[in-house]
Structure formats: structure tokens, C-alpha cells
Design a protein around this nucleic acid. Sequence first.
DNA 1: TATAGAAAAATTGGATCCAATATACAATAT
DNA 2: ATATTGTATATTGGATCCAATTTTTCTATA
Lengths: 221, 221
Amino acid sequence: MKFAAVDVRQAASAADLVYEALRKAIIEGKIAVGDNLRQEEIAQMFNTSRIPVREALSRLEQHGLITTQRYKGAVVAGLSIGEIDEIFEFRALIEAEVMRLAVPNLDRATLDKARGYCDAFDRETDPHRWGEINRQFHTTLYEASGRAYYLQNVQSSLDRIDRYLRAQLTFTNGVPRAGREHEAILAACEKGDADLASRLTRDHILDAGRSLMTFLRDQRG
Amino acid sequence: MKFAAVDVRQAASAADLVYEALRKAIIEGKIAVGDNLRQEEIAQMFNTSRIPVREALSRLEQHGLITTQRYKGAVVAGLSIGEIDEIFEFRALIEAEVMRLAVPNLDRATLDKARGYCDAFDRETDPHRWGEINRQFHTTLYEASGRAYYLQNVQSSLDRIDRYLRAQLTFTNGVPRAGREHEAILAACEKGDADLASRLTRDHILDAGRSLMTFLRDQRG
DNA sequence: TATAGAAAAATTGGATCCAATATACAATAT
DNA sequence: ATATTGTATATTGGATCCAATTTTTCTATA
């Protein structure tokens, strides 16, 4: 018997679609901190009932992206300056380590791909794209570590502070500096110097964190 | 105006109760890996409908404790040896760091509390209690770090491998060794030696991981 | 006018019902 | 006997309905 192979990946459930869409909207800052997420309103936007919406909200809460109160509903979760600071500290720790683990496994194709994102980041002028490209640059390198669990935690941490990171890049003119630091990290990777790449990654994240802290303290008073 | 203070903590929703109960059952190994979690069955156990059950399952999946397939249902998630190894490696990294951050903040009361758990761990003969006391000993010290986000991640990582950790303590006679290592960690904390406490914590976790690896490789072939 | 309280509306939590899909099983053909 | 196909059953995904609670609006009163 002959037949064409067919992709039988699971179709996404309504809850999956709603979850992904809301997650994206929240981490990109499309929905402001404190905004209410009305179940009925969201359900109508997706042409579905409130049941899948509630499942999606339940998942978002587990990831700390929203907070809910019984009978009162869900609001986009904001972070205090202290909480943001702590997440940057955490990211510096685990991303430095995952970078160290990745370097020995980096091959030509991966380095070229990272180079592509690195250049794209420098060329990009649309502020909304910086966050996304920045994330892809780092993720591309990290993936070589083969550490799926680390990667999950990196993504999860990034989700929590992504909107703030975008603000840092956009409003503190952090892009040129981040671009230079990306170059240095990539150079260390090319040399196969895991310790250096790890240290530079750590500093890169802590720099962004410090820059963001002064920006936020300025802004919030 | 005078009025009596009232405790206004949110009553837990049905989904909260189901989630917590299932989480506990899974991490303690009360439900075996691969076991099906039937929505109707669980709903009846809690005298509720399937709606809160589905929310609870959705949350559990986000934490990696179960895996679900559309129209097929949920099963308790197992971990490959490689995945377990990676989580131990991750724990060693972040718990060593959170221990280092905790030491400068440790006060007499916290140290005494940790001492209590340390002694209780050594005295305990019921294998089912070891995991719980072990967790409390570490958590008590970590909390002094004041790092809520780190703590969340520690708990989440522990949840994933708790059942295996219990097996390691129980079946590899890991309790005496863990007890000695707890003593050493506590001594370093008493001395205020953050670097030493951090290093010992790291070794403590990596030791348990290695011991578990050989046990599992033996067992699984 | 301002305010306390009651009624109304809005919103969430949960139960029941129906549709979509998967699994188990029996009937049939080879 | 074994494989295959059709059918019944079980299970999950989602829609609709009702109950519990909160929020808003209205009204009476000082």
C-alpha cells in the first residue's frame, strides 16, 4: 500500500489558542498591568464559550502572568521593582550556566543562525521587534546546551519580565549597548571559550537589569 | 466605628482543592506514573463536576506533573533518567545560590527551627515522612534569602522529582548520609560561612542525584 | 447635597447537557 | 485462527444554564 504521509499533530484546543494569544499579548505589553480580563469578552473575541477561557486564565495564573480573585476576576500581574530585580538576578544565574553548557556543543550552523539574529537586532528600527529578536538570539545559543528544563525556566523567567525588558531597550536607548554585548558573547562562542561566554552573558543580563532599575526608579519615583 | 477583625482569606475554589490534592498525590507517588486521571472519577471523589477538575488538570500540566492528549485524557508524567539528572543539576545550581544568599540573613530562631527538622529527620523511621522533613529543613533555611521567585522555582523543581528523591532516600539507604550532610550544612550556617554552606548544598544535591542515577540505572536496566 | 441602604446589573463559579473523538468489542471475511 | 470492519460504549471538549458573589445604580433620607 502506498500513500502520502500526513501530519497528524494534535489540533490545538480552544483553551490552547486562547492561552497562547493571551500570553503573547501580556508579555508584549499589549494589555496593560492591572487591566481586567473579562471572561465573556475574551470568549467573544475567540468565538467560543467561557469554559476554554477559564482554562486559559487558570494556566496563565500558574505562570504568574495574571492574578485572580474569586468572584472578582483576573488582572494582568504587575511586578514590584524588587521582584523585577530578583528575576534578573535569577536569569543571570541560569542563563550564564546554560550558556556555559552550550558552548562545547555549538556547531557552524547554530553560530551562523545566531549571527543572523545578532545582525538583525542591530539593523532593526521597530522597537516592537527588538524584544523578539533579542530573545531568539539568546535562545538559539542556549538550545545547544541540550538542557530542556533549563530552557523552560529561561522562557518562563523571560515571560515574566519581557514587557519591562522591552521598555528598557526602547526607553533607555539600551539597544546599541545590547548589540555590542551580543557581539562579544558571539565572539566568545566562536572561540569556544565557555567561561568567557558565560561571564559575558551574566554581565549582559545584570547590565540590562541595572539599567532598567534606574529607569523604573526614575519613572515610578 | 468599631468592629472585630475578620479573617478575609479567600475561600478556596473547588479547582484549588482538586489541584492541591492531586499535586500532593502525584509528588508523593500515591498515583503511579502513567496512571490515567479520569475526569469523571476525580469529580466524584471530590463531589463536584468535571469543570473544576479540568481546570486543575490544566494547571498540573503547566507544571509538568501530568501530560494530556486531546480526547485521550491525562496521565501522570514520568521522567527519563536524563530528565531527572538535568533537574538535579538545575536544583544544585539554584539551591546553592539561594543558600549563599540566605546565610547572611539567618537568625537564631530560623537556625533553631532548621535544627529541629534536622534532628527530626534523623529520628524519623517512617519512609513516607523523610521526603517531607527533608524538604522543610532546606526550605526553612532558603526562606531567609528573601528570594520569593527563587523559592518558587525550588519548589517547582522539587515537585517534579520528589517521588524519585523519596525512592532514593528509601531504597538506597540515603538517609544516614543525607543526615550527615544536613549537619554539615547547618554547621556552616551557624558559622555564617556562606560559601561553604553553598558548596555543601550543591554537593548534597549532586550526591543525591548520583546515588539516584545508579539506583535507577540498576532498576530500569 | 451627600450618604446609607436597597434593588438591579454584571461577573464569576459550577452543573448539566450535547458534540467530537477514542476505545472496546462483536461480527464478518479471508 | 487472524485480520478487518462496523457498532456500541466510554471519555473528553465545549456550550448553555443556574447559583453565588460582587459591582453598580437608584432611591430615600438627613
